[in-house]
C-alpha cells in the first residue's frame, strides 16, 4: 500500500499541497485531476519520494519513503515524467533497457522484458530506431515502456506513477496508454495518474481525487467526485455528467461558452445540464 498521511509541501511561504491524505492499494487505479497549478504534479512527486513533504509522511508498505534505499524504492515503484528531454542518440531498445537498471540480474531476461514492454505499448517496431529521431508521441510511449519494464515483475506489490501520460498523444494512443495502465493495475500494480482529461479519468480510474489549490476537494468513484457542482467549484465551468449511451461509463460534458450567450447562461446555466440529463 502506498499511503500519504496529511502531507503538505511548501515552497518558500507558498503551500503547494496542503493536508492531503491518499491511499493507493495494489491493483487499484487512482486519477488525480484538477486545474493548472492545483498541486497535482507536486503531490505525485511527493508520492514518488522525489521531494520530501514539509509536513506529514508518505508510507510505502508501512515504511516511510525516506527510509527506503533508492534502489529498493526503484524496484517497488516507477515514475513516468511529464516530458523527457533525452538528447543523446540511444536506440529505443537501450532506453527501455535503462528501466532494468535497478535490477541487473540477467541481461537476457532484461532484454525479454524490454521487448515485451515495447510490445505492450505498441512500439515494438521502433526498437531499433534512434530515440532522437522519434516524434513526441512515440517518445512518450517509449518512456512508458521504460517505466513498465522497471516494475515488470517482482515479489512485492509495485506501483506506477504517471504524470500526464497522455499529454502528447492522439486519441487512439491516449486510450491505448490508459488501457495499458489499467492492464497493469489488473496484474496487481497500484496505478496513480495525473490527468487533465476528466473523461479519461472517469473511464479508467477506480477512484478520482480532485485537487484544488493544493487541497483534496473530492475523492471517490467518478460519479461521486466529478459532479457538476464540484466541477463548477473547481474548474469554474458548467458541465454535466451523462451516461455513455452504449458503454454505460460516466461522461462529463462541459458546456461550450460563447460570448454572446454569456448573459443567458448566467441566468439559466444550471438548467441546461439537467435538461441534457433528462433527455
Amino acid at each position: 500500500m502506498l499511503e500519504a498521511q496529511d502531507i503538505s509541501v511548501e515552497r518558500g511561504r507558498r503551500a503547494l499541497v496542503r493536508d492531503v491524505s491518499l491511499v493507493l492499494e495494489p491493483g487499484q487505479s487512482v486519477a488525480i485531476v484538477g486545474p493548472n497549478g492545483a498541486g497535482k504534479t507536486t503531490l505525485l512527486r511527493a508520492l514518488s519520494g522525489e521531494i520530501a513533504p514539509t509536513a506529514g509522511k508518505v508510507l510505502l508498505h508501512g515504511r516511510e519513503l525516506a527510509r527506503w534505499s533508492k534502489e529498493e524504492l526503484a524496484r517497488a515503484r516507477a515514475v513516468l515524467p511529464q516530458s523527457s528531454s533525452l538528447d543523446f542518440p540511444f536506440t529505443v531498445g537501450e532506453v527501455v533497457l535503462m528501466g532494468r537498471m535497478p535490477h541487473g540480474r540477467s541481461a537476457r531476461r532484461d532484454m525479454e522484458i524490454a521487448q515485451a514492454a515495447l510490445e505492450l505499448v505498441g512500439a515494438a517496431q521502433l526498437a531499433d530506431r534512434l530515440y532522437t529521431t522519434l516524434s513526441g508521441g512515440e517518445r512518450q510511449r517509449v518512456q512508458l515502456a521504460r517505466v513498465l519494464a522497471q516494475i515488470w515483475e517482482g515479489d512485492a506489490p509495485r506501483y506506477l506513477l504517471l504524470d500526464e501520460p497522455t499529454a502528447s498523444l492522439d486519441l487512439a494512443h491516449q486510450q491505448a496508454t490508459m488501457r495499458t495502465a489499467r492492464r497493469f493495475a489488473r496484474r496487481g500494480v497500484g496505478v496513480v495518474a495525473v490527468l487533465h482529461d476528466l473523461n479519461l479519468a472517469a473511464q479508467y480510474a477506480d477512484r478520482i481525487v480532485v485537487l484544488s489549490d493544493g487541497r483534496v476537494v473530492a475523492a471517490g468513484p467518478a460519479r461521486d467526485a466529478l459532479t457538476p457542482d464540484i466541477i463548477r467549484a473547481v474548474f469554474g465551468i458548467e458541465a454535466c455528467m451523462i451516461t455513455h449511451p452504449r458503454f454505460r461509463s460516466p461522461l462529463i460534458a462541459p458546456r461550450a461558452w460563447y460570448d454572446d450567450e454569456l448573459a443567458n447562461v448566467s441566468t439559466g446555466g444550471r438548467s441546461t445540464c439537467s435538461t441534457a440529463h433528462d433527455h
Partner: peptide, 16 residues
Amino acid sequence: NALLLGEAEAGHLGID
C-alpha cells in the same frame, strides 16, 4: 547513462 534521461528520472531509477 541514467542522468541523460533527466535528474529526476535517474533518481526514480534508484541512482543517487
